[in-house]
Simulated assay, not measured.
Amino acid sequence: MSKEGKIVFCTGGGCTAKLGAGALSRILEKLPRGARDPSLLVGYDSRDDAAVYRITDDIALVQTVDFFPPMVDDPYTFGQIAAANALSDVYAMGGEVKTALNLVCFPESMDLNILGEILRGGAKKVAEAGGSLAGGHSIADTGVKYGLSVTGLVDPKKMYTNDSGKPGDKLILTKALGVGLICTANRVGEAAPEDMAGAIASMTTLNKNAAEISRKYTVHAATDVTGFSFLGHLHEMMGGKLSCIIDARMVPVLPGAEKAADDFLYTAAGQRNRNHTGPYVTFENVPFAMEEVLFDPQTSGGLLLAVLPEEASALEAELQAAGLPAKIVGEIIPKTEQEITVKY
C-alpha cells in the first residue's frame, strides 16, 4: 500500500482477470444439465449476460454476479467501476435493477478505510441505478476483489437476449473501446492523465440511460461488451447462425488506446481473446493497432445492440443527444463462410 493509502497495482485487474472464453466453455459444457425448468428462460448454457427466471407471464427475475481485482489506484473509483460493471448485465437483458449484494475479498492486514471507500463507490452506483443495496458477503483474502450480485426485473416478452439478431439489423455500440489497453499503459506509467481520466469516465458510466433509450426502439438482440472484447461478444451474438460486417472506421475508440497498442502494451486477456475469436474474423486493411482495440478486454463496457435497420439512425441520434459516443458500427447479414468481416 502506498503512503497515500491507495490500492497497490494489482496484476490482471478488472475484466482482464476473467478466465478465457475458450477455457470457460470447455468447463461449462461438461456440467450436468439436470431436468429443464421451463421457467428458466435464460441459463448459463446460452452464453448470455445474465440468467432470467419467469415468475409470471409479465415478470421475470434477472440475476447476475460479477467481481474482480482493482484496475485503478483509487478505491472509491474502483468501487464505482466494479459496481457499474456488475449492474450492466441487467441492462443488457433489457431489465431494471432492483437489489444488489456486495461481494468482498479483502486482506485483514489492509486499512479498513480502503474497504470503506470501495463500498462507498459501489453504493453510489447502486443508488444511481435506482436499486437497493441489501447486504453482502466478505472473506479475508490475500488480495482485494469487489463486485456485486444483482437482481433485476424484466417483462419476459420484452427481454433482450444476445443471439436473437436478424439479417439486416444494424449494430450500435454505445461506449468507446480501449479501456484495457489504457489501464495497462497507466500501470506502467505510459498513459497520459487525460486518457486515463477518459477511460475512468467511461467505466463509471452506467448503461442505464442507454438501455432506457433503447427500449423505445425495436432491438432484436443485445449484449454488453466486457472481458471477452468487442469481437468476442460479437461472436456470441452471431450464435453460429448469423454473420456480420463491421466498419472499423465507425467504431468509437478512447483517446490513447491505439497508441497503447502501437506501443505493444497488450494484455494477456486480449491475446486470449484473439486466440479464441480470431479464427472467426477476417480483417480487410485494418491497422494492427485497431485489431488490438477490437480484441481488447473491456471493463464496464457499453451495450452492443442489434436494431431494426429503419430505426437505427434515430436510435443512434438519441443516444448521442444523451451524451453517449454511440455509433452504428456494422450490420448483421445471413450466415456466410466467414462469420465476422471487419473492413477499414
Rank of each mutant, 00 (worst) to 15 (best):
E117T: 02
E128Y: 11
I114N: 02
D111V: 03
M93H: 07
A100H: 00
A127D: 07
G143W: 11
K98P: 05
L101E: 15
V150F: 03
A134V: 09
E96T: 12
E128Q: 15
A134K: 02
V104C: 08
D111I: 04
S138W: 09
G122I: 09
I114P: 01
E128I: 13
C105N: 08
G135V: 01
V150M: 04
E117L: 12
G121F: 00
A100L: 03
G94N: 05
L112F: 13
A140W: 12
L115H: 07
V154P: 05
G95D: 03
L115A: 08
N102K: 14
G152E: 10
L112V: 12
L148Q: 01
V154S: 03
T151P: 03
I139D: 08
D111R: 04
G135Y: 01
E117K: 12
K125P: 00
T142L: 15
G152L: 10
L101F: 15
C105H: 07
D111G: 02
K145I: 07
T142P: 11
A100W: 04
N113L: 09
E96W: 09
I114V: 14
S149Q: 13
L148H: 04
G147W: 04
A134Y: 02
G116C: 05
K145T: 11
G122C: 07
S132E: 12
T142E: 15
D141W: 02
N113K: 11
A123H: 14
T142I: 15
N102W: 14
A123K: 14
D111K: 03
E117N: 07
G152V: 11
V104E: 13
